[in-house]
Write a protein that binds this DNA or RNA. Sequence first.
DNA 1: TTTGAATTGTTGTTTATACAACACTTTGAA
DNA 2: TTCAAAGTGTTGTATAAACAACAATTCAAA
Lengths: 190, 190
Amino acid sequence: MTSSKTDLRVIRTRKLIMDAFIALSSKKEFKDITVKDITTEAMINRATFYYHFEDIYDLLEKVLSEVLLINLNDDFLHHNELNEGAFLILFKAITNFQKSLSNRCHRGYEETIARIIREQLEIIFYKMLVKQNAASENGALKMTAVILSWGIYGASIEWRTSNQEMQPEEFIKPVIPYLLAGIDGQHKNE
Amino acid sequence: MTSSKTDLRVIRTRKLIMDAFIALSSKKEFKDITVKDITTEAMINRATFYYHFEDIYDLLEKVLSEVLLINLNDDFLHHNELNEGAFLILFKAITNFQKSLSNRCHRGYEETIARIIREQLEIIFYKMLVKQNAASENGALKMTAVILSWGIYGASIEWRTSNQEMQPEEFIKPVIPYLLAGIDGQHKNE
DNA sequence: TTTGAATTGTTGTTTATACAACACTTTGAA
DNA sequence: TTCAAAGTGTTGTATAAACAACAATTCAAA
């Protein structure tokens, strides 16, 4: 741990900016939000914004991945085994996240959001896979993580566009055996 | 106007501290709130607290007078004549303020609060009186303001301790003619 | 197309705030 | 009572953030 505590001002300012952005997102569409809007709401100087974030897209990315990670960390990372229950919790978290997004009017940025979600999923899957098979070859685990992340993300899109009335659990449950089989299969090939 | 704009950081920090204090006040009693509690909630350093406020009583005083002033400014200072309607609005604002205080568990500090309310009332009455009779002697107006502020404050205490079911308006209405007569009487003596 | 206003990024200087350390007081339990 | 823990209030130094000014884009309206 290189725990060189970050300055309280940095933590506070980041929080103020992110909170301001989230608050604004529920009032306007993303494309209508300017940096000045955010800094005014957050009560910080505009130059300070650029001290913390490259631009407004960088902020979007960090807010989204943080919200998603909070969604996950709470009830996922404790059950650290990649079994049926884990997939159910994970899929539910993603669909919840997407519901909260659509409430916040982030339309028109699906591509950015998609990339962020998928990247986060890949990171999570990879961590879980490494934890479970420390011995396996790294490249193979990475590839498995890639495939799982795209697959699960795609499933969540499918759920969102067609079957929102169906519960996420029942939506994903039928394919979980297939996913697990893939992981196990890879196992045996090592 | 000596409008040497105050630094945005000062405004923001004061707001963070006051908001944190108000938030804590709805969870704990005043006597159980420490400076550390406030600064933690506000995400500021403890030393910064002392840069802005002498101590926790100073903060209490400033929060209370600010809340009261907001209560008043909104619907009072626009009707800038000291007639029956003005007294009604003013009395209603004070009783509202006292209700919000008791919700926030500030018991045990009635004396401090009383002083703050009365001082604010005196300031307001004095301003109104000066506006209405610019020609009159200053000392007499000040004395009138003192008497009115103690009187109205006392009436609000009387209302609070005995008759909370009665509407503030009907409670104060009967004595307003007397108050107005006093003001007019003073007028004629000039 | 041109113009003017709004927005984006950036930089140098000043200042408010974080941090750590300190002595002192208050509090509560052994 | 005695002791440890928690709270108060202060100070010197390091640094994040405010501010003002700037050039460069973007964009809507004339």
